[in-house]
Design a protein around this nucleic acid. Structure first.
Length: 270
DNA sequence: CTGGTCACCTGGAAGC
DNA sequence: TGCTTCCAGGTGACCA
């Protein structure tokens, strides 16, 4: 489920409910996801208070007294807040227990990750290589223009490179480029400063709108369907190959870039 | 360094 | 109906 907006909506959904709560243990039902799970997770967490839930790119960081849980939802992961004792279903791999409630990590494809990190300011290889946050003020057209300089490959895979800028997944890459009127096949390093301004604005607007849309269903996180409304959003181009462009009516095209499906309107995007 | 491909895993949809 | 094939929101390892 998760690009940056979904992760942020998850964060917003769980943080008010569990911040300040004391962990009472954990249940693990699988040996590992992308990486092996931390040893003795329940014993390690028990007694520690969850102080803060942060996000970095598509990662969530649960800050406890003595360290941090680094969590990634991969391609199919979700995190829900449920009453203690809620029976686990297939793919419910980890429960973090907080007395009367639990945080349940569900992830059919198991591309997600869950790692235990020492407290700040310790780094971690997965975090240290991450690029700029697109919703922070430093992410500007000027920054983007400089970051893309010298890149000869197409712009769409470039803006999905988490070493450059985090959080822009396959859906919002296509959507942002549509909003900016930029052809996804265009060489990244050959986009003018002015158009980089537009692209940076488009990325910000796209992500913020998606967060706002997901945020409207935040109450779903306390219940059974974690953030269900999210994938029902109507996109401008993503998943709409052959359908009429919402701006010009021409057919939306689909191509493959770096192994991923890209959608765009050849008339509106140059 | 850059960019492309593959692997990881399961499930749903489409095709035959 | 049932089997096969393809595809999916991420990303790190590996290769040219």
């Amino acid at each position: 489920m998760p690009e940056l907006p979904e992760v942020e909506v998850t964060r917003l959904g769980i943080a008010p409910a569990v911040t300040g709560w004391r962990a009472t243990g954990a249940v693990t039902r699988v040996g590992g996801l992308r990486y092996p799970l931390p040893d003795d997770l329940g014993r390690r967490l028990a007694g520690q208070v969850l102080r803060e839930v942060r996000r970095r790119g598509k990662y969530l960081l649960l800050h406890f007294d003595e360290g941090r849980l680094l969590l990634h939802l991969g391609m199919s992961g979700s995190l829900r807040l449920l009453p203690a004792g809620t029976p686990a279903a297939r793919h419910d791999h980890v429960d973090l227990l907080f007395g009367k409630v639990l945080l349940r990590l569900t992830d059919p494809r198991r591309f997600g990750s869950l790692l235990w990190l020492p407290p700040e300011p310790a780094g971690h290889p997965l975090l240290d290589v991450l690029g700029i946050e697109p919703l922070e003020a430093a992410f500007t057209g000027r920054w983007l223009h400089a970051a893309l300089r010298g890149r000869r490959g197409p712009v769409k895979p470039a803006i999905m490179d988490s070493h450059l800028v985090v959080g822009i997944g396959n859906i919002y890459a296509s959507e942002s480029l549509f909003r900016a009127g930029i052809d996804p096949r265009r060489a990244a390093g050959r986009i003018s400063g002015q158009r980089c301004d537009r692209l940076a604005d488009a990325v910000r607007a796209t992500l913020n709108e998606a967060i706002a849309a997901g945020g409207s269903s935040l109450k779903d996180f306390i219940g059974s369907d974690g953030g269900k409304g999210w994938f029902q959003q109507s996109h401008f181009v993503y998943g709409r190959a052959g359908e009429p462009c919402r701006a010009c009516g021409g057919p939306v095209r689909q191509v493959r870039q770096a192994g991923r499906a890209t959608f765009f309107c050849p008339r509106c995007q140059r």
